[in-house]
Simulated assay, not measured.
Amino acid sequence: MPNKQSAKRRVRIAERNRIYNRYWTTRCKNAVKKVLEAVEAKDGEAAVSSFDMAQSVIDKAVVKGVMHRNTATRRKKMMALRIKSLDA
């Protein structure tokens, strides 16, 4: 348990940030899972619509500093390749 006032404040801030980051990380993971489930079900329309939503969520996470931009690009590329292989 911290003794100094500044250390107590940092504990509160760290907990607040942890909850915020966990919310956005979970939201990103769920969006990606929806896309991959649609691809597994071979449902092209659902995959494309959930891909658009997943891109939006991932880009928002990058802007908020929760996810690194290269990680976001890698995830979007992976989903796009899966959807492209579905069309072929």
Rank of each mutant, 00 (worst) to 15 (best):
S6V: 10
L36W: 08
Y20D: 12
N70Q: 15
A38N: 09
M78G: 03
G65F: 10
K64V: 03
K76S: 05
V66W: 06
C28N: 03
A88I: 04
V63I: 15
S56F: 11
D59F: 11
V48C: 04
V11S: 07
M79I: 03
R27I: 00
A54Q: 00
M78E: 06
F51A: 04
L86C: 06
F51T: 01
N17Q: 11
W24P: 01
V39W: 00
K4F: 06
G44K: 08
R9G: 10
K60F: 04
S85H: 08
K29Q: 06
R69T: 15
K84H: 10
K60M: 04
R12P: 03
S49P: 07
R74Y: 14
T71C: 09
R16S: 15
K34S: 08
Q55Y: 08
G65V: 11
A14H: 05
R16K: 15
M67L: 14
A61G: 12
A61N: 09
N70L: 11
A54P: 06
M79N: 03
K34L: 08
N21M: 07
K42T: 12
D87R: 02
V57C: 01
K29S: 05
K84V: 11
V39P: 07
R69A: 15
R9P: 07
K4D: 08
R10M: 05
N17H: 11
C28G: 04
R22P: 05
S49E: 13
F51S: 02
S50P: 14
S49A: 12
D52E: 14
I58H: 02
F51E: 01
V48N: 06
L86A: 03
T25E: 10
A61T: 07
K34D: 06
V66F: 11
M53I: 09
A46S: 14
Q5W: 06
A72W: 03
M67A: 03
K33Q: 11
H68N: 12
I19P: 06
G65T: 09
E45A: 04
R82N: 08
V62N: 05
M78R: 02
L86K: 00
K77Y: 08
K64Y: 12
A41D: 13
V57F: 00
D52H: 14
R18M: 08
K76W: 04
Q55S: 12
S49K: 12
V11H: 05
A38M: 10
A54N: 02
S85W: 04
Y20C: 09
H68Q: 12
E45S: 05
E37N: 15
Q5I: 14
D52S: 13
D43Y: 06
M78P: 00
Q5G: 07
K77C: 08
T73Q: 15
T71F: 11
F51L: 07
K33R: 13
M78C: 01
K4M: 09
R18D: 09
D43H: 09
V62Y: 05
K77F: 04
S56Q: 13
A7N: 05
E45M: 06
R10N: 11
A14G: 03
T71H: 14
V35W: 00
A7I: 00
R74L: 13
T73P: 13
K42M: 13
G44P: 05
D59N: 15
R27V: 00
Y23W: 13
L86I: 01
A38F: 10
P2C: 02
H68R: 10
Q5C: 05
V66E: 04
A14M: 02
M1K: 12
